[in-house]
Computed example of a mutant assay.
Amino acid sequence: MTSTRTVTLCPDPPLTLHEAGDGRPVLVLHGGGGPASVAGLVAHLAGHGHVVAPVHPGWSGTPRPAWLTGVDDLALAYLHHLHDRDLRDVLVVGSSLGGWIAAEMAVRDTAHRITGLVLIDAVGVRIENEPIRDFFTLDARGIADYAWHDSERYYVDPAAVPAEQLAARQGDMGALRVLAGSPYMHDPKLLRRLARVDVPALLLWGESDRIVTPAYGRAYTAAFPNARFDLVAGAGHLPHVEQPEATFALVDAHLSAGGGGA
Rank of each mutant, 00 (worst) to 15 (best):
S3T: 14
R5H: 13
V7M: 01
T8Y: 09
C10Q: 13
P13A: 09
L15K: 02
H18C: 02
H18Q: 07
G23S: 06
P25I: 09
V28F: 01
G32V: 03
G33L: 08
G34T: 15
A36R: 14
G40H: 12
L41M: 10
V42I: 10
A43R: 14
A43Q: 15
A43W: 06
L45N: 03
A46Q: 04
H50C: 12
H50E: 12
P54L: 05
G58W: 09
T62A: 05
P63D: 11
L68G: 02
T69I: 09
D72W: 14
D72Y: 10
A75E: 08
H80T: 11
L82S: 08
L82P: 10
L82E: 10
L82D: 11
R85Y: 09
D86H: 14
D86W: 04
L91F: 13
L91N: 10
G94Y: 01
G94P: 13
A103F: 05
A103Y: 02
V107M: 00
V107H: 03
R108C: 11
H112N: 10
I114T: 10
T115N: 14
G116E: 02
I120V: 15
A122M: 01
A122V: 02
V125W: 05
R126P: 02
E128C: 08
E130T: 08
P131F: 04
P131Y: 09
D134V: 13
F135E: 13
F136G: 11
L138A: 08
D139T: 12
G142F: 07
I143R: 11
W148V: 06
W148Y: 15
W148P: 02
S151P: 01
V156I: 15
V156Y: 00
D157C: 00
P158E: 04
A160N: 08
A163V: 13
A163Q: 12
E164V: 11
A167I: 11
A168N: 06
D172F: 08
D172P: 06
L176H: 07
L179H: 05
S182I: 00
S182G: 01
Y184F: 13
P188M: 05
A195T: 15
A195K: 15
R196M: 11
D198G: 06
V199H: 04
P200H: 06
L203M: 12
L204M: 11
I211L: 15
I211W: 06
V212D: 02
T213S: 15
T213Q: 09
G217T: 07
Y220E: 12
T221K: 07
A222V: 07
A223G: 07
R228K: 11
R228D: 13
H237L: 08
H237M: 00
P239D: 02
V241G: 03
Q243H: 07
P244Q: 07
E245Q: 13
T247H: 04
A249S: 13
L250V: 00
V251G: 03
H254G: 05
G258W: 04
